[in-house]
Write a protein that binds this DNA or RNA. Structure first.
Lengths: 215, 215
DNA sequence: CTCCTATTTTGACCAGTGGTCAGTTTTAGT
DNA sequence: ACTAAAACTGACCACTGGTCAAAATAGGAG
């Protein structure tokens, strides 16, 4: 990414990533600009926030850190997003979509044990996206929760409908909810204690088997 | 609680709680001391930390805030505790004990539905002690987790043993673990979304009923 | 090309955090 | 009364999320 950087009033440096491309001096003000500043868009901010988020988690990612990666000031981020919560709410939209499409994919497959897959893949998603899951289903603050509630509910309803369909029989909504809670319990207890799904795969399989038997 | 407070070098004020008791001046240094400073003990710090913790939660309680309540400097707290984590680890010991005695109490009662009580009271404990539960069973950091793991495991084992005994039959440990996860899931999903157990009592009762049927 | 306005961006600033540590005060024993 | 150990202080550090006046840039109209 190209970054223009002002050094003194008229002395400027143009970077590509972190390396100097060239320097130049302003005569008047570079009227009829041949260059534009690399534009800072919501999208590019979200993208960078996600990169840091995946390895550091919400708490440890700082707005200043993101701004630094992007070669802009942290103040600029607050022009595009009301606050940190709003930024990460947008980051998470992506993952709600991912979870939804996991569910959809299982339902269109053939010859698979759909119930088992639904349960197991939900757990896998949680454990392979620990920081994301944390914010999606284990709220950190009232403010974050109010932003997550709608997409979380939508994902749950998609899951619930899929479970009923996969079972081939009528299920009480309480029953499905209890199963969901049990899956959530597994994820939330193992979150951050293991590195990835595989480490808990056996336990997950047993838990899933237990839940399947209730149907 | 009595607090001595230095104002200028020789001008001192003695407080009881937040109100002035009397002032005095030092001549030399108050040799052969008639008074002792109100001592700052681990216990009194834990006690005050708990008070703030209950209403604010781990993140929002600050060491400076606690020190202020206690009329000492925040540095003093670090003399007694290595860091914030260590302090709150001690705060939580109390609640692990409370959870353990809830389990014990249920088991010595007579003519009660022990399984139902065990399940329901676990949920009640979690929802009525949201900030505590969060730290006890939903780790915030590797450091906190390593301190919580031992007492959490102990509490779980007590719970598991109680469940098996209450059921009157042999239960596979995987089965008990799955039930525990399901209860944990209920608590962790409702935590902070409701004010107290009563608000979720009906849902909790249905979830518990579902789990009982698996036995 | 010159203005002029609107949009973006900057960076000093604020109030707050957990944590450290040299220097001081207080305690307790000799 | 002296001394060594224990307890405590508060300036300091590096950091956080967030604000905002001022400055830079963009884009259109004349």
């Amino acid at each position: 990414m190209i970054i223009w950087k002002k050094v003194s009033n008229n002395n400027n440096i143009v970077y590509v990533d972190k390396r100097i491309l060239f320097t130049y001096n302003l005569i008047d003000h570079w009227s009829k600009r041949e260059f534009k500043m690399a534009e800072l868009t919501k999208d590019i901010i979200i993208q960078q926030a996600r990169i840091r988020f995946i390895e550091q988690g919400y708490e440890k990612v700082s707005m200043r850190g993101i701004a630094n990666d992007l070669g802009c000031s942290h103040g600029a981020l607050y022009y595009h997003f009301k606050n940190k919560t709003a930024l990460f709410s947008d980051v998470l939209d992506y993952y709600f979509q991912e979870l939804n499409s996991i569910i959809d994919r299982i339902m269109v497959q053939e010859e698979n044990d759909k119930l088992k897959d639904l349960f197991l893949e939900f757990i896998r998603f949680g454990l392979d996206h620990p920081y994301q899951y944390e914010l999606m289903f284990m709220l950190k603050s009232k403010e974050m929760d109010s932003l997550m509630q709608r997409p979380a509910t939508e994902s749950y309803e998609r899951f619930a409908a899929a479970v009923e369909q996969a079972s081939g029989i009528h299920l009480y909504s309480d029953h499905i909810y209890s199963i969901f809670l049990a899956l959530h319990g597994f994820v939330s207890l193992h979150l951050h204690r293991i590195e990835n799904f595989e480490e808990a795969a056996e336990g997950a399989a047993r838990h899933v088997e237990f839940l399947k038997k209730t149907i």
